[in-house]
């Protein structure tokens, strides 16, 4: 049982992608919320004076990287949490009884979840163009892709770690309300975290998505709160950490 088994990782990736592509309703569902936010907030606040917004950046420009981050956060976390849906339908046992290391199972899930989250984020990015979004530089898009991958890996790992703490998908609603949404609001996706009161701002600084959104903003819009290498470094650390924690906790999941 190799710690890292490419064939099994591929099988798990393939399964996630097949399932994702087979259900168009799931794709539409996954991008409809960020798209609605984008349309209503983007237009609704287009003339509002939002404190701390960088000069010369209108709100839609500011919002698009945030919504891409939001899409990644939801897409990736749900992919990690889908271990629980597999548990509900019994399929997790089929995976756990196979001669495959838990590490490979987590890596397979991360590969699959990152891919599907990336597809969603790219769709949002593309759909934002007709709404009026302008890329600062198309040459920097590969850098944006790097950031997207790092965000995906971080939050799939995070989802796996969370899923390991529950025994079925009943905790889903709680997780969304008390974990995922706070992460979203505390990430600078909608407004600069500088405007938040101090104690809450500290939480925002501990949130990997803050650096993800800021990095995306730097690359896509050309305006950022922190240096790019700081965003990049923080995300590398968080993805390594989350994969390690996710794997560690998943190792301890009892199959039955």
């Amino acid at each position: 049982m190799n710690l890292i088994d490419p064939r099994s990782i591929y099988a798990l990736w393939r399964r996630d992608v097949t399932r994702f592509l087979r259900t168009p309703s799931r794709i539409i569902g996954s991008i409809s919320m960020p798209l609605l936010f984008l349309v209503f907030l983007g237009f609704g606040f287009s003339d509002a004076a939002i404190p701390g917004l960088p000069a010369g950046v209108d709100y839609l420009q500011y919002l698009v990287p945030g919504m891409v981050g939001f899409t990644m956060l939801f897409g990736s976390s749900f992919a990690g949490l889908s271990i629980l849906s597999d548990q509900d339908v019994g399929f997790l046992k089929e995976i756990l009884v196979a001669p495959v290391s838990r590490t490979s199972i987590v890596l397979g899930r991360i590969a699959g979840g990152s891919t599907t989250a990336l597809v969603q984020a790219v769709l949002i990015l593309v759909l934002s163009v007709p709404l009026g979004f302008r890329f600062d530089s198309l040459l920097l898009l590969p850098v944006a892709a790097v950031f997207l991958v790092l965000i995906a890996v971080t939050f799939v790992g995070f989802g796996v770690a969370l899923a390991s703490q529950f025994s079925d998908s009943e905790g889903f609603g709680l997780i969304i309300q008390f974990v995922i949404f706070p992460l979203f609001f505390l990430s600078g996706a909608l407004y600069p975290v500088e405007s938040l009161p101090d104690p809450i701002r500290i939480l925002a600084f501990m949130n990997p998505l803050t650096y993800g959104v800021d990095g995306l903003r730097a690359v896509l819009v050309g305006s950022a709160a922190y240096p790019l290498f700081l965003d990049f470094g923080a995300l590398v650390v968080s993805s390594v950490l989350m994969v390690a924690i996710g794997t560690y906790l998943f190792e301890r999941v009892e199959a039955v």
Binding site: R19, R22, T23, F91, K93
Partner: peptide
Amino acid sequence: FQEPALDEE
């Protein structure tokens, strides 16, 4: 297994 363990999709 006692409960089905197939991916129905």
